[in-house]
């Protein structure tokens, strides 16, 4: 059993560099959710030169829309949504300082190029594992666009949030390497 890496936000380049596609990571710190409509709003704010809802520099973005907080718990369920839908926005956000994104599903070649150029990580959280993932979330609060409901930007404080590195800083892609390694019989 290979031990997972531990990362804490804000992420530092020297801590991200040793990671390789397929590595397990436990992330502690602050992550911001943003999905389809929040991305559209952020893009509009950037285009018009308006202030941004949270600092993009050094940010970790989680492509997700949580369930509301139920009365009997401190947070609802939350897991990743399909990252590919955010591909049109990602290169600009990387260029403005976003250091890592969390979601599920592969990224486009253009996004992967931008990740390498700006040295950004892409990690997957357990898709459909929202109940389990919620155990690693300490708190949630809306920080922007509350009118979007589940598509608002939430700040999550997380402790040991479990992730798999998909795209590392060296061009590795575990959505290609994982299935290939299995097929070639070298798990």
């Amino acid at each position: 059993m290979i031990l997972p890496y531990r990362l804490t936000t804000p992420l530092k380049d020297e801590e991200m560099a040793p990671l390789r596609a397929g590595d397990q990571v436990l992330l502690t710190g602050d992550i911001y959710t943003a999905r389809d409509l929040a991305h559209k709003r952020i893009q509009e704010a950037i285009d018009r030169g308006l202030p941004l809802p949270f600092p993009l520099k050094g940010a970790v973005l989680f492509y997700a829309g949580p369930t509301p907080k139920p009365p009997h718990r401190h947070v609802g369920s939350v897991g990743p949504t399909t990252s590919g839908r955010m591909d049109p926005y990602a290169p600009l956000l990387y260029s403005l300082g976003v250091k890592a994104t969390i979601g599920k599903g592969p990224r486009s070649p253009r996004v992967k190029e931008a990740q390498l150029l700006h040295q950004c990580l892409y990690m997957a959280a357990l898709g459909g594992g929202a109940a389990l993932l919620s155990l690693s979330i300490l708190s949630m609060e809306v920080v922007a666009f509350p009118e979007l409901g589940p598509e608002a930007v939430y700040l999550f404080k997380v402790r040991d949030f479990p992730l798999t590195v998909i795209n590392d800083l060296h061009g590795g892609d575990f959505y290609l390497e994982g299935p290939a390694r299995y097929r070639e019989g070298r798990p």
Partner: peptide, 24 residues
């Protein structure tokens, strides 16, 4: 391991009475 995590997710959802997936 991934399949074991999915089974664990189902146990947590049932125990805590919360949705299995945020996309209900």
């Amino acid at each position: 391991n991934t399949l074991a995590s999915l089974l664990e997710n189902a146990r947590v959802a049932s125990r805590e009475r919360i949705p299995l997936c945020q996309d209900t």
